[in-house]
Amino acid sequence: MSINQEVELLRNIPLFAKIEPSKLKLLAFTSERLSYQPDQVLCRQGDIGDAAYIIIDGEAAVRIATPSGDIEVARLGRGDVVGEIAILCDVPRTATVSAVERVTALKITKELFFRLINEFPQIAIEIMRELAGRLERTNAQLRDAVTRSAPQ
């Protein structure tokens, strides 16, 4: 894929939709493009967060380890960002993300991620929207779980 094709792909991701093409070209050029085979791990729960990933193609599963085994909490696809919580909160990875099918992703280092947020506040707004959406979905799942386990 050419740099121009990557720029076009990035423009179709809501997180980057309002960023000028020249800046997206810089992002595409300074990011590392990685490929993962099915079951290969993009990031592992508990590891230090040194980068975020943007899924360009394919599907990945987000799993959280619990005492009774791993639980899949989400599926990610084209345009989804993963790994940003560990970077933003400076905490270990909160989940393990692995490819369900072949995945192509852009790896954005912590330094580049913060530079983008500083230069383009709309990226921070989109990240907040995404995180708020995830929190709402998690709360809904928790409500459902509590309702199902409550005595009838």
Score class of each variant (00 low, 15 high):
Thr96Arg: 12
Ser22Cys: 10
Glu59Gln: 13
Ala17Trp: 11
Leu88Cys: 02
Ile87Lys: 00
Ile125Met: 14
Val82His: 06
Val100Glu: 10
Arg129Gln: 11
Arg63Lys: 15
Ser31Gln: 07
Ile64Phe: 06
Leu76His: 10
Pro151Leu: 15
Arg148Tyr: 04
Gln45Glu: 08
Thr147Tyr: 13
Leu34Gln: 08
Glu119Cys: 06
Ile48Met: 09
Ile108Ser: 01
Val146Lys: 15
Val146Ser: 12
Ile85Val: 13
Ala105Met: 00
Ile56Met: 05
Thr30Trp: 09
Leu42Val: 04
Gln122Val: 12
Leu131Arg: 12
Glu20Ser: 13
Pro14Val: 02
Gln152Trp: 10
Leu116Ser: 09
Ile19Phe: 11
Gln45Trp: 04
Arg143Thr: 06
Asn139Ile: 05
Phe113Tyr: 00
Ala132His: 13
Tyr53Ser: 07
Leu131Ser: 11
Val103Ala: 01
Glu101Asn: 15
Glu136Trp: 13
Arg75Thr: 11
Leu10Trp: 07
Leu88Glu: 01
Ile85Tyr: 07
Tyr53Glu: 07
Ile48Glu: 09
Gly79Ser: 09
Leu27Gly: 02
Ala28Leu: 03
Gln152His: 12
Val97Asp: 03
Ala51Gln: 00
Val91Ala: 02
Glu111Ala: 03
Ile19Thr: 05
Ile127Asp: 04
Thr109Arg: 07
Thr138Asn: 14
Ala99Asp: 05
Met1Val: 11
Ala60His: 12
Ser149Val: 08
Ile87Tyr: 02
Asp50Phe: 00
Glu111Ile: 04
Phe29Val: 02
Ile71Asp: 05
Val82Asp: 03
Leu88Val: 06
Glu119Ile: 04
Arg115Ala: 06
Ile117Phe: 02
Glu8Thr: 07
Val81Cys: 10
Ile55Trp: 01
Val100Thr: 11
Asp57Ala: 05
Asp50Gly: 01
Ile13Ser: 12
Ile108Trp: 01
Ile125Lys: 15
Leu26Gly: 04
